[in-house]
Simulated scan of single mutants.
Amino acid sequence: MARMHTRRRGSSGSDKPAADEPPEWSDVDADQIEDRVVELAEQGYEPSQIGMKLRDEGVTGTPIPDVKLATGKKVTEILEENDADSEFPEDLYNLMERAVRLREHVRSNPQDYQNKRALQNTESKVRRLVDYYRGDALEPDFKYSYDVAKQIVDE
């Protein structure tokens, strides 16, 4: 896939191996995995961090290479079922956090044109994601602005 804000082509990466069932050595019960996912979410971990923790640490010492294969549900689906999901999607929140940091940097360094452009690109991505999530994961009348992002990030 091509880059959004440059003329370069995208970098190709490796794909996950095609698998229909979890490996034999990972024989953890799906209910235990779901309980651990909810527990990690309550500790403040984001869905991507939860997946990495389960991959590295596992539930009872046995690593879980893929939560979806082991439980039949994605991490975000498990969190939604147990009302432990965050108010904003993870990718949108991370981009808002970056936009706030860039805005504060540009305010204190007005001659930094490279970061002014980075701020424009980041806010453009945020607006695209807001349009994508509006009505589903966000309120139908949600509008992005720096003040709104600052308030969300500071909570």
Rank of each mutant, 00 (worst) to 15 (best):
R103A: 15
F88C: 08
S48F: 01
A84S: 15
Q49F: 05
P65H: 04
R98H: 05
V106R: 03
R98Y: 09
P110V: 00
A99F: 01
M1H: 15
N94T: 11
A84C: 11
E21F: 03
T62F: 08
R3K: 14
E80C: 03
H105M: 05
E39R: 14
V67T: 13
G72F: 00
Y146I: 00
E39C: 10
D29L: 02
S26T: 09
S108K: 02
T62W: 04
G135L: 08
P65W: 03
Y133W: 08
N109F: 05
N82E: 15
D112T: 00
E139C: 09
D154V: 00
K68C: 03
E155V: 04
K116L: 03
D91P: 02
R103F: 07
P140K: 06
T71F: 05
P22E: 01
A118R: 15
I78Y: 12
D83R: 05
M4N: 00
I78V: 12
E81V: 02
G58N: 07
R3S: 06
A137V: 06
S86L: 14
D66N: 02
Q120S: 07
K116T: 04
E97N: 11
D83V: 06
V75N: 06
K68E: 14
M4Y: 01
G13E: 09
P22L: 00
E87I: 08
S86H: 11
E39M: 13
P22F: 02
Q114P: 00
L92G: 07
E80A: 14
R98I: 04
Q111E: 07
V148C: 08
R55G: 06
Y144V: 04
E90W: 11
A2T: 10
P22Y: 04
M4A: 01
